[in-house]
Every structure is written in structure tokens, then in C-alpha cells.
Design a protein around this nucleic acid. Structure first.
Lengths: 183, 183
DNA sequence: GAGCGCTTACCTATCAGATGATAGGTGAAC
DNA sequence: GTTCACCTATCATCTGATAGGTAAGCGCTC
């Protein structure tokens, strides 16, 4: 009846599994067979939807970036405090609930060994997110860079120490700077 | 004449290559064959010195951590400003000169797929470095966490954007906080 | 409304290459 | 003659990727 005949939204479920695994294990820790097993199909079917690994990962990256853009919305409709709070909440969920890396944090770390197609997506994401934050902070580029770095680093620390609270601890003072400065 | 008969310090050169590759490509981006080719031996010889991959990577991690401890020295012999400056310089070299990730930043990202042996080294390194910084800052644990997170995140950003200057930009304000507060 | 061809969404089977790891050999130094 | 620092050769396994098959649904004609 629906357009999809067999599995419902198989392509989306492939992207789900790939994203999950990318955030946990990194580019080289993900295989077509593992993804296929997650979804309940064969690895050839993953190739059917996404012909190559760079194409698959680039698709995951685009979906992830688009979702972030959508969720963050127009930076000018929020106060700087709200904007920083939204970012904080997104990073908190990644670490505490999903126990993952931020996708682009992972890709940034591995960028030296990534297909250029994927590296380009990573650069685009950070440029866009930085631009969003800069606008949200009414033009303070240096602060935008400091904040994004603090969150990414906080995720790294939290993962290394296996302590989600480390993210909050590592960013608390920076967040406070905004809550007291411009709330 | 020396103790080693054939290649001079082959084990050390294996560690050099492994460290370099780990920092660029991550755990799953490193292979015994590539390391062997760097060093000029066969992959079986890498196994001769380091029987398994977890053992090799753990050895790299220990040497790296020991070198950091040595280079940083006693935190009480420096002012807080000097201590933060030393860390800044170490991270700057990693990014600008060597164009790498910090080894433990990379391992922290990938920790979900690492042998526990290696993950434990990562946790130990961050705990030690945090402790060193806390002492250097005369007990300010929250600031120590914020600073380390800022540096690690700055490295991530610099790599993603392929712009070494991003590390300095992302940490400048934080560094200034120290240069003006307690210099 | 039966038959026909096209497309979609998978499948089986297979490939070449890389990977970590092992067994067993060799020659030089001690 | 034992140990050290390598080597050759080989292994099973995993990897991304391809070729070709199949069954189900779709739109179209007659």
C-alpha cells in the first residue's frame, strides 16, 4: 500500500544505525555488515541504498547537520543565553543519554584518514555552527569559537573519564559567564 | 657493539610510527603492516616487539603519558600562568607543527570501540593531567577541567577547519583570563 | 480485468585486498 | 649453543564492493 514494499523506511534505519556506530566507534569502526545486521538486511542491501562507504557517511553527516540546523532555528529569535543553553542541552543529551561522541567531533578527530567528501561535510558543519553561534552572540566570533571548543572538549573528557557529569563540570564556568553577563 | 644487533632502537621507532599514525588516523586506522613499512621491517617483527595490537597501543599510550609527565614537571614550581602556558604550547605544537590530534583526545573519541586495556590508559592520562593542572591552579578543579576541555576542543576545531590558528582563537579568551588574573 | 513490462527492494554468491596473528626458519652476536 | 632480531610463509577473518537473481507491486494496454 505504501511506497515501500518490504521494510518500512529501510534507508532511514540504515542511516540510524550508521550514525549510532559512527558516533561510538568512528569511521573505521563501522562496517556495512554490522549496519546490515542492525537493520535486519544483508550488506548488499546497504550498498543498494548507499553505493559506497563515503557516500553513506556523507549522507549520515548531511542528515545530522540538517537536523541540527532545524533544531537550533533562527539564532536571532533567542537571547544569547538561550542559544548557549540550547547547545548545552544538545551536547548533554549526546553524552548522558546516548553515551556517544558528537558525530562531527568524531569525524574531526579522524579527519586525517577520511575521504575528502566526508571531511568537507565536517568542515561545513563546524563553519555553519560557528556562524549560528556568532549570530546568536550578536557578532562575538571569538566567544563562539571558545564555546564550541569547550563543548566538544567537554564531550571528549566525559567519554575518556566515563563520567557524563564531566561535560557539565568542564563547561559550567563558561556557561555561567553567559548566564550572568547577558541573561 | 651496542646491545641491539640489527636496526638501532627498532622498538622505539615502531612506537614512533604507531604514535604518529594513531594521532592521525585513530586506532582502527593503524595497521601492523603500515607501521612495519614506516620502520623498514616486516609486520611479523612488529609482533615480535609488541605481541598484540592492544599491547602496542597501550605501550604507545604509556610512553606518551610518561613524556607528558616529564615535560610538565612539578606543578608547584610554576605559577598558574606558566602552567597554562606550558599546556598551551604543547597543544599548539601538536596541531600546528605535527598536524595531529592529541593522542588521548583521539583515543577518548574512540573509547567505545577500544580494548579495555587502552581505554584504561586514556582514563589514567586524563585523571593525571587534570590532577597536575588542579595543583598548578592551586586547587581550582573546575577551572582545570574547563581548561583541558578547551584545549582538546580547540584541537578538534582546528583539525575540522584545517586551520591551526583556530586552536589559539578558541582558547585565547580563556588563556587571557589567566594572564590577567594571576600573572 | 488479464496480461505485460518496468521498477523497487531486497537476496545469494562471490571477489580481491587488508587485517591481526602464528609457526617456524636464519644468521649474527655473545 | 643459546639468545636476539629479525625473516618467509601462511592462516582465518573481515572488509568494501560487484554481479546477477527474484519476488512483489505499479501502471499500462487490450
Amino acid at each position: 500500500m505504501a511506497t515501500a514494499r518490504r521494510g518500512e523506511g529501510t534507508a532511514a534505519r540504515i542511516l540510524d544505525s550508521a550514525e549510532e556506530r559512527l558516533c561510538r566507534y568512528g569511521y573505521n569502526g563501522v562496517s556495512f555488515r554490522d549496519i546490515a545486521a542492525d537493520v535486519g538486511v544483508k550488506s548488499a542491501s546497504v550498498h543498494y541504498f548507499f553505493p559506497t562507504k563515503p557516500a553513506l557517511v556523507a549522507a549520515v553527516a548531511r542528515r545530522y547537520a540538517d537536523l541540527c540546523v532545524e533544531e537550533l532555528g533562527d539564532p536571532l529569535t533567542r537571547t544569547p543565553v538561550e542559544a548557549v543553553g540550547m547547545l548545552a542541552e544538545m551536547f548533554r543529551r549526546t553524552v548522558a543519554e546516548k553515551k556517544r561522541m558528537c558525530l562531527f567531533g568524531m569525524l574531526a578527530a579522524e579527519v586525517g584518514g577520511l575521504p575528502s567528501e566526508v571531511g568537507a561535510e565536517a568542515r561545513r558543519f563546524f563553519a555553519e555552527t560557528l556562524a549560528w553561534l556568532r549570530v546568536a552572540l550578536r557578532g562575538d566570533a571569538a566567544e563562539a569559537e571558545a564555546i564550541l571548543a569547550a563543548f566538544e572538549g567537554g564531550v571528549l573528557l566525559a567519554r575518556a573519564m566515563d563520567d557524563p557529569a564531566m561535560l557539565e563540570k568542564a563547561t559550567a564556568r563558561m556557561a555561567a559567564r553567559h548566564f550572568t553577563a547577558s541573561g
